[in-house]
Structures are given as C-alpha cells and as structure tokens.
Design a binder for these strands. Structure first.
Lengths: 336, 336
DNA sequence: TTGTATGCGTTATCAT
DNA sequence: ATGATAACGCATACAA
C-alpha cells in the first residue's frame, strides 16, 4: 500500500524516469503519444508526483502561509477567505495558523511555514514589538511577506492597512454631530498602532468641534471586557452619554449590560462600534459601526504577495490603505 | 543568503555530515564534546535541520492537518483551538484549512495536507456523501484520520460526536414543559446527519408529551436565513409561539426580525438556539441554547489521533460522544 | 566514536 | 525524443 513513485511508472512502461517526469512537466519535448500513455498508466497506478521531493529540489511549493493572532471573531476568518479566493484562483494552496494572541506561538507558526517552504506569507502580528528582529531577518532573507492590520511601520514589505485614524474620527464626529457630549472611548489593546490611531481619531474629532476630549478606557477587544467596563460604570454611577468602542464585541458587551440594568439605547447611552463583526446589524437595537473591508483586505494582501512572488525579488514595497464605511444604525441616532 | 545546510556545518568543523546529523539526533553514540561543539557552531551559523528533507526520508512531519467546512462562526475555531492545545503540547504543529463549504475544495485541501505528509488529519466534512470513496481510499492507506461533528458512520476511523438527538430532545422538551404549543424547528442543512438527528429529537420530544409534532423548516445555519424565515412568518401571519433553531445564528437572526416588527421575546415568540456561539448569552434577551463542548471536542479528537499515530497502525476505532448542556435563559422562559 | 556511502522522489543537465 | 545521472538535505547501515 506504499506510495507509487515515478520509478514504478517508469519500470512498468520500460521508459526512463526522466521521460515520465517530462510527461508531467509540459516544458520539455516529449512525443505526444508517449506522454498520453504515461499519463494514462500513471493515473491507473495511482501515481501522484510527490511535492515534498519537488520542494526539496525547487524550493517552491505553491503553498502560501497565513498567520493571524486569533480567529474566534469573524474579522480574521473573513480576511483569510478573501485572500484564499485570489490565491486558489492562481493555483496556490493556503495554510492557516493562528497564534492564540501569543508572539511565541506566532514565531513558531511562521517558522513551521517557512520550514515547509511556503512561497510567501501573509501575517497579522500578535505583538508589534516582540518578534521584530526575527522578522527583519526573514525579510532580508528575501522570503515574500505581506503584513496587514497589525504591522510594524519599519518593515520593508508590502502592507495592507485600514485608516483607523480617519474612521475613528468619523465615528466620533457622528456622535458629536448627533449632539452627544460626554463620550467615552473603549480602546483596544494598548501597544497596537491601530489602537493608538483610533484614539487619535477620537481626540481629533473632539478638537475639530472644540469639545473637551472624552475619557479613554483601555479594555481590549473582547465582549467580556465590554461587559465589565459597563458594569463598573453603572456601579460607580459614571455612565456616559455615548460610547465609541474600538470593537463591535466590546460595544455589544457593554450594550448588553446597560440594557440589563434598565438603560435604553440610544436614549440613555448611545453606542458606536468598530470593525463590523457581521453582528452589529443583528443586535437590538442594531449598532452603528465602522465597517472594514475584510474580504478586500485579504484579496489585496494576496495580490501584493503574488506580485512579489512572481517578480521574484524585484519589487517595490507598497502600502495600500483601504477604505471603510460608517454604517449608521439605531444605537447612535439622537431621536430627541 | 541561502539556507545553511548540514554540509556547511560539517565543512566548517572538519567533521562528516553524519556526525553533525548525529549531534542533532540523540539516539546515536557521539562524544559529548563534539556534540556540544557542533550544536554551538550550528546555532551560530544559523543552521536549522530542513524538515522537508527529513520528511522525504522519514515520511514523518510532526504536522497535523485540520480541515473544517467554514470558520466564520466561532464553533470550528473553538474546536481547532482545543485540538491545538493538546497537539502543540506533544510537539506537533497544526495546519488549518477551510473548505468554504465546498467538497471540491475540501478534497483539494485534504490532498495538500497529505502531500505535505502530515502525520494525521482531523476533519469535519463539508458533505457527507461527495468525497466518501476518496476518504475510503485514504483510510485503507492507513493515514490516521479522526472525524468530528460531521461524519460518515461507515468510515472505520475514530470519531468525536455530539448527541444531537438527545439535546434537541431536551431543548424541545424544555419548550414544551414551559407550556408552549406551536413550536417550529428551524433545521440545518438537509443532508447532514446532525440535522436529521436534531429533527428526530424535536419529533421525539413532542411524542413523549403526546403533542402534535411541530413544523420543520430547513434554512441552514446562517443568520440571514433566520431573518428571512422570520420575515416570511410575519408576512404570512404564521408566527409560531416558539422556535427551536438548529443554530444560534438562525435563532438570533429570527429574533432580531421579530423584535423589529414589534414582537416580544419570549412573550410573543419564545426562542431556543443550538451550538452556543458565545453570543447567545449576550443578545437581548439572552437566548436559551444548547451548548456544545467545543474545546473538548477538539481536545478529544486530537487525543484520539495521537493515540492512533503513536500506536502506529494497531488501534481500535473509537467513537466518543460528548455531553452538552442546555443553558436556559430569558428567551424561552414562560413568565405567565 | 566517527566517516563513507546509499537512498528518499523529484527535476534538470548532458548525452545519445 | 529519450536515457543516464547528478543534485536537493538529510538519516542511517555499515565500515573503519
């Protein structure tokens, strides 16, 4: 029951292994009839070229590795699907690994993929600081990498980004225009650039309208965190008039707790979320939220990567910033 | 900038490649000093044994492949994380692929993993019928596979399952006991065994209490489907007193539409979901839902797989059925 | 304890 | 158009 190899096929047909190999690789001269015969009997015998051997020889696998910090929320899965769409189209297969938010795991994951000789990598970082010398080495060793979402500015690679500053500004502006004064920002994990940019946007909106800048509370991206923060606000009797959350999950969590304690959305607390987890539209009331083009992020990252792979070394690192959308829904509309 | 190989290290130290190899593989006799020296300089030179070459030789990769039909909902990601926990512990790395609900993609995915010489596979099927001869071949060729969640009974492999019948029965029973009469079941994708089992449980509960069996509507697992069904019910003025949905997503979708049209949950329509998407507890009102032990499913599948891998061929296929829980929340409690 | 030589399954170069 | 053979990087049986 062992694997059928090129030799078995060659022996069976009394030809050399090179002939069989040629039958499977169009680029060489081979008589049509022999080729057909070989292909036919190879199929009968259940022969499939062993990609491991091929990799060893050619250092090329037609596999692409994607590494993400987590995938319990739908953001990363959606990006991955986008990437997969263009990669599969071009004959590449996609190997996915998730780092469980840990930079040690992330590093191991990346190394496994490199060891497996993927032709390129698409990565969103678990931590922007911890692996950076490791990545620097990888980048100078010329393996194609495209970063997205969570990146390190300094890396000389292509990147796909979202304008967190702009959209945080828009989202906050929307709340201000609706007439809300006491706005609190539930910010994401502290050391991420995207968190800082969303905070800056939050701030800028206030300044634009000459308002005192609202409080910022760091609570990460999890639903439970949103719940805890809301609970604390209620206990301390410090419930703000409006909340701009850095993720839909925290927004939903907070909203849930507020409602449980008898507060109405948006009559008592207005809420705006971020990242559009496909859920925002389905809560009650539906939550206003910044939508990121997840699928497009994946597709763009994949295209940039393929460009680099195909131009084999000669390429200019590009940073593409994609556009989003503010979906305005009931949770933030000032009915008064 | 090319890869450092065993030869480079050997040359540098004026030893043979086999000595270097031995230094990296404990099982052979080698003088402690030479070993230490080799390991040290190898590290300095940035040498890492090439796993591709190793695979070619040993047909063993310490990689495990996991293939799931989708991962936008949190069910499969949570299972994967569970599996990963035990696999990484044992020194295995996990390669993930998602089939996008398509059996063609699934087949390609599995083949890529097999080609990459994974030591074993953990699979949840996209379709229970389409690839079955393919899998039969794979199974008889002795590659360790564990199926979970969506399986084919006949396959002679280990399986990890959930007792869908039992828990659908419990969930329906709960609604009946609460006094609800006109109960509709939003069933999942038609050709899946788990769908059939949940339907049977739904039926059995009615029979147990000598009630006429409620309607069954097939609508898959997506939130949008739940919304559409609910909308149709409202339009046709056929809104039931209670709904037992085969997924939390459809339950949430339906609930959202009902509420939008002025119906109260559970006063007008009671709702019970299935699969506990970590969301059920955070909607308003929170949704009663059958919780599957996702993490445990993953862990168990991984353990069964490792058992089989380590016992190299000699093993008895086991089917493990894990227990769930019915989380009763506001959406189904009869307040009257 | 260490070195030599072979093979894992391919592709590519050089003959024929 | 086809065959022989050398690599790819490594582990191991055998020799020294």
């Amino acid at each position: 029951m062992e694997h059928v190899t090129i030799k078995d096929v060659a022996k069976k047909l009394n030809v050399s292994v090179s002939t069989v190999s040629r039958a499977f690789n169009d680029k060489y001269d081979i008589r049509k009839e022999t080729k057909d015969l070989i292909l036919k009997t190879a199929k009968e015998m259940g022969y499939r070229p062993n990609p491991i051997a091929k990799k060893l020889l050619q250092k090329r696998s037609f596999n692409i590795g994607i590494v993400v910090p987590e995938f319990v929320n739908s953001f990363f899965p959606e990006v991955i699907i986008g990437a997969q769409e263009v990669l599969i189209e071009k004959g590449y297969q996609v190997l996915i690994m998730q780092s469980d938010q840990s930079w040690e795991t992330e590093r191991k994951n990346v190394q496994v993929l490199v060891d497996n000789m993927v032709d390129g990598l698409i990565i969103s970082l678990s931590s922007e600081s911890k692996n950076s010398t490791y990545y620097q080495k990888l980048i100078t060793s010329n393996i194609p990498i495209v970063f997205f979402n969570r990146v390190v500015e300094e890396f000389e690679t292509s990147k796909v980004l979202f304008d967190d500053y702009k959209w945080a500004l828009f989202a906050t502006e929307h709340l201000i225009i609706q007439g809300y004064k006491d706005i609190v920002h539930l910010a994401g994990t502290k050391n991420l650039t995207l968190t800082k940019n969303r905070m800056k946007g939050f701030e800028a909106a206030h300044k634009k309208y000459k308002q005192p800048v609202g409080r910022v509370i760091h609570c990460g991206f999890k639903m439970e965190a949103g719940e805890q923060v809301a609970l604390k606000m209620i206990e301390k009797n410090k419930v703000p008039r409006a909340i701009f959350a850095a993720s839909d999950a925290t927004a939903i969590g907070a909203m849930h707790v507020f409602k449980k304690h008898g507060l109405s959305i948006p009559e008592d607390v207005a809420i705006v979320g971020f990242s559009e987890s496909r859920l925002a539209a389905h809560t009650s009331p539906p939550i206003t939220s910044v939508e990121q083009p997840t699928n497009d992020i994946g597709q763009t990252a994949a295209k940039l990567l393929l460009e680099q792979i195909e131009n084999n070394g000669i390429f200019v690192p590009q940073t593409i910033i994609l556009n989003g959308r503010l979906n305005i829904r009931e949770s933030s509309i000032n009915i008064v």
